[in-house]
Amino acid sequence: MKAILTTAIGGFLVLGLAGAANAATPQMEKCFGVAKAGMNDCSSNKSSHSCAGQATKNSDSNDFVALPKGTCNKIANGSLVADAMMKKAM
């Protein structure tokens, strides 16, 4: 065991110190209130809801059919419903 560790750590040190491995982790200063990409706050409210636009009771009801319509449709074998329907069709 000791030999395995010594060899592995030896190689790790040589390659690690020589390679750009550690250099790939620049120390970056994080500012307070750092925002995730695309999450800069001031503008994000406008895109998803305008106060006037949604200020009705109507927006409370979910009167549309609740079906996912995103990339999940592209995942093969990704939906239980689709599977069940396929089995019925067969």
Binding site: K36, G38, M39, S44, N45, S48, H49, C51, A52, Q54, A55, T56, K57, S59
Partner: peptide, 17 residues
């Protein structure tokens, strides 16, 4: 309603992020 929608809108945006 406006207040309520702002509350929900902010949380919706947080979940989007």
């Amino acid at each position: 309603e406006i207040y309520r929608n702002n509350y929900r809108g902010n949380l919706h945006d947080a979940l989007t992020g």
